[in-house]
Write a protein that binds this DNA or RNA. Structure first.
Lengths: 199, 199
DNA sequence: TAAATTATTTAACAGTGTTAAACAAAGATA
DNA sequence: TATCTTTGTTTAACACTGTTAAATAATTTA
């Protein structure tokens, strides 16, 4: 009875160990260096064991992608809560998004296919929608009394997303962005777009 | 004497064949599917021959990256020339950049590391600077009489680049951007930034 | 203790980038 | 023309990769 539980707990543990090992390799050597045998080495098993827990390598990366979306969503939620006005909240959300992209660089790369073949989102994993929903909701709030159409909100969402994600990508693939430019572009752009939204 | 030339011409031809084959595979199966043996198959040689022309697989991709920058620079130059005002020119440059990202999707992915491990730019290949220089020059022209600092021009360059590249990346890794949104975001953003630059 | 089940590993397949050695074809020299 | 040298090309190999089937070890059940 209880031993069943113990075994289940152990299985869950190795599942987590696999994910941790994969993330460790991604961080230390980059995603292109991730291999099933390297994961096996770290968790002190042989490679085929991993297939008891994940269908294939892709599934492991997919799971980490999901994890990334959860961490990001949590951080964004926390950041929004400490802000008073809708405009401040929207700004805080994007700043949090930005920070996540650098503190969790490897997860971000996995999530958005920077230098990595990011998983095909066949059935579009639900975790994606967390951050996206928070952002569109916050944009709607800022537009408040203006009764915006779905299309308008969508437009501003992609405008925000494009510039923030774009600047992040550029930083990730080249480290040559001049000092101070990042902050200037980011702050000015966010402020500028919020300004444009309001009027 | 003349046979030397003929042989040199043949060598140059296979060099081009290798690059063409690589690009073909990239287009048909994606860059992750590119392999030396597949290239060899297409050019009807065996794999080791390729190493007579390129140091390694990375070097082939690097060469295609350079090619991409040249094509882009040429297209941008042509687009600029047919426009009258500096503002129209700047807009045309970014529209051309945008179009290139879709007509030459695979080259663009190679150049900017979308879903691909793009080559490390150790000594920062000179071809990169073509498009970048044209864009900053055009921004300066638009700012014309305002005598902008280097930092200001740089800021606007990255603002433009971020949003255009960001929107492109999002489109490349997800095909889920709603209909019409792309055009709206792109046109409005470019117009908005040019407006902000001028005032 | 013996049988059945589960956990784990070994071996293998087909593929990868890359290199060294073997071989074949062409050119130069005598 | 016959030999030697150079060049072009292929074969074989190494150390990897993801993944699967078969063999083995460990554990649980009867």
């Amino acid at each position: 009875m209880a031993s069943k539980d113990r075994i289940l707990r152990l299985k869950e543990e190795t599942r987590i160990n696999i994910l941790d090992a994969a993330l460790l390799i991604g961080k230390q050597e980059g995603w292109q260096a991730l291999s099933m045998r390297k994961i096996a080495d770290i968790i002190e098993y042989t490679a085929p064991i991993i297939y008891e827990y994940f269908a294939n390598k892709e599934a492991i990366m997919m799971e980490l992608t999901k994890k990334g979306y959860c961490i990001l969503a949590k951080a964004m939620k926390a950041a929004k809560e400490v802000q008073e006005t809708p405009a401040k909240q929207l700004e805080a959300l994007w700043i949090t998004y930005w920070n996540f992209a650098f503190t969790e660089k490897e997860l971000y790369q996995l999530m958005f296919g920077i230098e990595v073949n990011c998983c095909v989102f066949e059935k579009s994993i639900p975790e994606i929608e967390g951050p996206a929903n928070m952002l569109t909701a916050s944009i709607k709030e800022v537009m408040g009394n203006k009764n915006p159409t779905e299309d308008e909100v969508c437009k501003w969402y992609y405008t925000f997303w494009s510039i923030v994600h774009g600047l992040i990508s550029i930083n990730h693939v080249r480290q040559s962005v001049p000092d101070g430019i990042n902050e200037q572009v980011l702050k000015d752009a966010i402020a500028g777009i919020i300004q444009a939204i309001k009027e």
